[in-house]
Design a protein around this nucleic acid. Structure first.
Ligand SMILES: [Mn+2]
Ligand SMILES: [Mn+2]
Ligand SMILES: [Zn+2]
Ligand SMILES: [Zn+2]
Lengths: 140, 140
DNA sequence: TATTAAAAGAAAAATATTATCTTTTATGAA
DNA sequence: TTCATAAAAGATAATATTTTTCTTTTAATA
């Protein structure tokens, strides 16, 4: 049995095809999809899938630490199976959201601690700009 | 005439009591209020104020660069009359949002540029944790 | 003061998300 | 393997935030 199934069981939660499908979809994409996008991608394989189930499942997966929720400032949340605190790039041109796969963040939290008396737990860093493709379009 | 009024005129926009009131409220608070909160604070002074006007005004003020919109991951946006790209602290305990008034961000964008081929325009950095008051409550 | 385009206000609509209710199913026991 | 049952899925309604539409009011200019 895979580790996600084990974790669900440990928490007293049922292992369902929908939960595994949503998790696997997130684990196999780099596009940080929204609940709506996830639903649309799964409904062909799971014709009875409902949007409510997607939302409820995302909540569950988030709560047990298998995924994280992103908020880049759109109307809706995006989801990411990479639960590490990592930096995202958001393209103003096409709207895509990508990882910045370098540890720009590495010592940022340590640096921030010097400047506040908050007990810091985590941080979110989003960069906004234009991806290479959109830069080309703009220059034409 | 104050500078905000001048700017509105320059853009061909009318200078209205509602617009000035919303801007002044934002300029005189440190709490990064939501549209709803702004509305509630103003409705006593402006009994005819409507929530739609608050939303439309925030959109206008944002578009002309007098305020910025924050999204710390709640259901709704917050607003800030400080339009500099600065870092925010969000308390998991009481939910308040404060500025981190140190330039933790200073060279962050320069550092990030080394690691991406995006054309970077801006960034958002939010730290999450517990404010001093909430730390005390937790330790009891 | 009169004209008028823009803004305000009121209310409806649109979205995203959450809650409720019924049906189905994963799970563990017999 | 069934069977019982609590949990999850699915359908739908409700909620909350934001946007849109429409009418009335007002800021700006002549
Ligand atoms: Mn990511
Ligand atoms: Mn601020
Ligand atoms: Zn792009
Ligand atoms: Zn606090």
């Amino acid at each position: 049995m895979e580790e996600a199934a084990v974790l669900l069981k440990q928490k007293g939660l049922k292992v369902t095809p929908q939960r595994l499908a949503i998790l696997n979809l997130l684990r196999n994409t780099k596009e940080h999809p929204t609940a709506e996008t996830i639903y649309k991608k799964l409904v062909s394989d799971f014709p009875t899938m409902s949007l409510a189930t997607v939302y409820k499942t995302l909540e569950v997966l988030k709560n047990i630490g298998l995924i994280q929720e992103l908020n880049v400032g759109e109307g809706s949340f995006r989801y990411d199976a990479n639960t590490n605190s990592h930096t995202h790039l958001v393209c103003f041109g096409c709207g895509k959201v990508e990882d910045l796969d370098e540890s720009v963040l590495q010592n940022l939290i340590e640096e921030a601690k010097k400047h506040t008396d908050y007990k810091l737990v985590e941080q979110k860093l989003y960069f906004y700009g234009y991806c290479p493709a959109c830069q080309k379009m703009l220059s034409n």
